[in-house]
Design a protein around this nucleic acid. Structure first.
Lengths: 172, 172
DNA sequence: TATTGTTATACTCTATAACTATA
DNA sequence: TATAGTTATAGAGTATAACAATA
């Protein structure tokens, strides 16, 4: 369909039909758009579980790290501890996770999945995989690996820790 | 420093010292973390201009597409038109951009930089470049190109339009 | 009728600071 | 005193719908 936009005729590059200008290789802009796409897909695949953004990620990390503390979760997810409190509280009320003071240092809360949470996680896990698959499916297999590796490297370098695997285990 | 976390001892992978589990190659999680890093850097380099997230991007796109409509901007930035109205209004009040009905179709607003906006843009442009540079500097040059290309490809494929250049012009 | 843009509203996300409890 | 977690609050980001103006 032709547009009636007042934009002068020029080679289209962006969805709106505009030039990216200096934004072409800007990481903030690119991740903004990609994240918008990813969030849309996440909603499609995982909306039925009524897990708000961070809750889904938290669930995945608790499942992979039973007994993890809220403090460690906030670092891995790059969010504030006050935000984490609210997020965790809702999961506790819904009996998806348990939150118990650590035996060795009672300042820490150890987070674990409840049986109900474990069953939920099994279903969420499938949706999460199909969500990631649906977003990345437009890339070739080696492109996916490259993208994941580069994003991991970027994150790891700036967070000053080892997000990216030093030993690059191959998965698909 | 040793942690007192109740997390059982295991090979550390994430900032908090935990296993990524299924999130290792999850695009939502990875872009979440990378975007957090990018936003932090953007604040460091561009906070002084008092341009809220979208305003900075909008300014860049208006500079590259003088006379663009709000409607086309919303598509390129993946935001709602109601949000765009507020964003644009603030830039107009601050005399950074002009908003005038298009001569050919008065439903459209043509957005242009004011002289003041042009001067601001020159300064912002430098900050934007140094911001993107500081984030991407941890990658090799060919890695940067790859990352940008893959993010463009991902965005373009899902937005059903040509964000990524079909003809891949080489820039650095 | 369809589309651009505006307004109002609500909900989510994020950031900050003061507070507690444990160490 | 330092750290984990809580509470409260404010600000920014996002989504929805009703509306006016224009086509």
């Amino acid at each position: 369909m032709p547009r009636h936009s007042p934009t002068p005729p020029s080679p289209s590059r962006l969805p709106g039909g505009l030039q990216p200008g200096i934004l072409e290789d800007n990481i903030s802009y690119l991740t903004r758009v990609v994240r918008s796409v990813a969030q849309q897909s996440a909603g499609d695949h995982l909306g039925k579980f009524e897990l708000l953004g961070g809750q889904l990620t938290a669930l995945a990390l608790i499942a992979a790290n039973e007994g993890v503390s809220q403090n460690d979760l906030t670092q891995a997810m790059q969010m504030k501890k006050s935000q984490m409190t609210v997020l965790v509280q809702d999961l506790v009320v819904r009996e998806i996770i348990d939150r118990t003071p650590s035996a060795t240092d009672r300042r820490y809360n150890a987070l674990t999945l409840t049986p109900k949470g474990g069953r939920l996680w099994k279903r969420v896990r499938e949706g999460l995989a199909s969500h990631s698959e649906s977003v990345l499916s437009v890339l070739e297999l080696d492109e996916r690996r490259q993208l994941v590796r580069l994003l991991q490297k970027l994150a790891a370098a700036h967070l000053g820790d080892a997000l990216a695997a030093p030993g690059e285990d191959e998965r698909d």
